[in-house]
Design a protein around this nucleic acid. Structure first.
Length: 570
DNA sequence: GCCGTTTTCGGCCCGACTGTTTTCAGTCG
């Protein structure tokens, strides 16, 4: 599968053309690169069959270049461009304030090729000497460099939502706003959020902007205008606030929710009808307002079914909307049980009783108690006897807990794929999760075999946090996921959507693939304390981003049906 | 370089803010 390689080279060609100031081509190359990246068929197969131009965005010229990359592993055109402008555009444009034009200028005037060159020039005060740049630009670049050096700035979804809710509360408390609503990648439910976009309506805009820029936690005001302001909080996180007229709130919400690619598609669609779409509304050629007050109206006017924010990534949602084949995404209200909960019997912080009460308070109908089995001396976990006792306790508490408690366990998948669950207890366990916890860096083949063995195990109902990733810390393990999903679907093994903000595992793209193979999903918070039960919503959001409907998810079933639908119930 | 409810040629998303400019280019989202 050479799709990733081909995409990488095409993206670089796009960058280099942009650096040269070539118009339009960069976009064409990026579009083709993205389509190839997303394409589930190996690009070399399409090339062999002469079907490259069937990919949207790939015409004759790019098809030829793709064929060359498939055949030789590189592209002469790409090498030529690199030789002409040996500039690491990607790295340089990551610095706030530097775009392709400035990068080119810096290369021609100062010979700057990469971040190290840039850093030296900034430190020596040479940037201000370039015509068109000045002292402020140099300062901005210095600050930008410091930020780029600073570690991962993106915030986990599970931390960004509470922060956003807090800010909204603070702003509303000033009495200067009619309403304030988060947009951007947060509203789309991306697993990490780079900055926060807030949208507001105010009858006293000047005061409202001042209030925003002087919130207690503001470290720096990056920009302040009558319509848009940007602040940086003391923890380095950037928040933008936009004031919009009430009659254009829907258009603004649509626009600022993005994604950028999705919006470009919508605007093209509007343009094809001779209309114009902006954050102020959808207008016809003669200026008549066709939509703007509510978001759904924009889609309706463009002949589209409403597209939920989680799908707005330009990954086929617009075509599906037009064709009326958008999935009816799972609704958070349908997910009223948590299938992965720990207690202090293993490495959790709270007692079984405390977890049960907290879950009942949150309106959950059922939780599965799934503590670790002891698989290594150093890690807290249950012995077979401990598990036997816990099963008794779960059954006892069940009568007074105010919700259904399911017996369960999170077993470990050993390096060879065997699962350590005590077989004589299987009949007493409502739910068996099996997860990988160690040896996550195996080669693709070995890891695939290992996961397949666990999936085929008749005692395993759910494959827990399948890829083992920790967002921002540990990459997903390598495996032939298509094969894992195919076998999971065939055996009835559910795939976990681990809702812990640092895991979100499976992630959205793999979820979409998994349900494409007909696999079932099981959402669990992996709660190790009572507060973690709130993570459930992030699991639901992630499932929605993966185009999942209620039918794909075990949690949406009443308990008896759930038990019948799990693998060992079939 | 791609593509077609404006088109096989001539388009290609739109607006706010900043800085370095004397009227606008570049960047960002």
């Amino acid at each position: 599968m050479k799709n990733a390689l081909v995409a990488k080279i095409l993206y670089e060609v796009a960058d280099l053309l942009e650096l040269e100031g070539v118009p339009f081509k960069p976009r064409a190359y990026r579009r083709a690169a993205r389509a190839i990246e997303d394409c589930p068929t190996p690009i070399e197969d399409l090339a062999a069959e002469g079907r490259l131009t069937e990919i949207a965005g790939v015409g004759e010229a790019i098809a030829q270049k793709v064929a060359e990359i498939v055949a030789t592993g590189k592209l002469a055109y790409h090498e030529e461009l690199k030789a002409k402008l040996p500039v690491e555009l990607r790295a340089l444009t990551q610095v706030e304030g530097i775009g392709p034009k400035t990068a080119r200028l810096l290369y021609e005037e100062l010979g700057i090729r990469n971040l190290a060159d840039l850093e030296r020039a900034a430190a020596e005060g040479r940037i201000r000497s370039v015509k068109g740049l000045g002292e402020k630009t140099e300062q901005k670049i210095r600050r930008g460099l410091a930020e780029t050096r600073g570690a991962e700035k993106r915030l986990l979804l599970g931390r960004a939502w509470p922060l956003a809710r807090h800010l909204v509360e603070q702003l509303m408390a000033t009495g200067l706003y009619r309403h304030v609503e988060p947009a951007g990648s947060l509203r789309r439910g991306k697993e990490t959020v780079g900055d926060l976009d807030l949208l507001a309506v105010s009858d006293r805009p000047d005061e409202a902007m001042r209030a925003f820029c002087s919130l207690p936690d503001v470290a720096e005001v990056l920009a302040q205008g009558p319509k848009r302001s940007s602040i940086r909080l003391s923890d380095g996180f950037q928040v933008d606030l936009r004031l919009v007229p009430a009659n254009a709130f829907g258009a603004a919400l649509q626009y600022f929710t993005g994604s950028k690619e999705h919006n470009i598609r919508l605007r093209e669609r509007a343009a094809a009808r001779g209309w114009k779409l902006s954050e102020y509304g959808l207008t016809s050629a003669d200026g008549e307002v066709l939509a703007g007050e509510d978001e759904a109206g924009i889609y309706r006017a463009l002949g589209l079914a409403y597209i939920p924010p989680e799908l707005r990534e330009d990954r086929g949602e617009i075509a599906a909307s037009e064709a009326g084949t958008l999935p009816e995404l799972v609704d958070a209200r349908r997910v009223r049980c948590d299938l992965h909960v720990h207690t202090d019997s293993s490495d959790g912080e709270a007692t079984l009783l405390a977890m049960a009460r907290a879950a009942a308070e949150r309106g959950l109908r059922a939780i599965a108690i799934t503590d670790h089995l002891r698989f290594a001396q150093a890690i807290p976990g249950l012995s077979a006897d401990d598990l036997r006792r816990q099963i008794e306790e779960v059954r006892r508490r069940n009568e007074t807990a105010g919700l259904t408690l399911l017996t369960g366990v999170e077993a470990n998948i050993a390096r060879d794929g065997t699962v350590d669950v005590p077989r004589d207890l299987l009949k007493d366990l409502d739910l068996v999760i099996a997860s990988v916890h160690t040896h996550l860096r195996l080669g693709r083949k070995e890891m695939t075999d290992r996961l397949l063995r666990a999936v085929e195990d008749e005692g395993v109902d759910i494959l827990g946090h399948p890829t083992g990733r920790l967002i921002g810390e540990r990459p997903p393990c390598e495996a032939d996921w298509d094969e894992v999903f195919r076998r999971a679907a065939k055996t009835g093994t559910a795939l976990e959507v681990n809702a812990h903000p640092q895991r979100l595992d499976l992630g959205a793209e793999l979820i979409r693939r998994a349900i494409g193979f007909g696999a079932r999903l099981a959402i669990g918070t992996d709660a190790h304390d009572v507060g973690h039960l709130d993570f459930l919503e992030f699991g639901v959001i992630t499932a929605r981003r993966g185009w999942a409907t209620a039918e794909h998810i075990l949690n949406t079933l009443p308990v008896e049906d759930l038990l019948a639908a799990r693998k060992r119930g079939r």
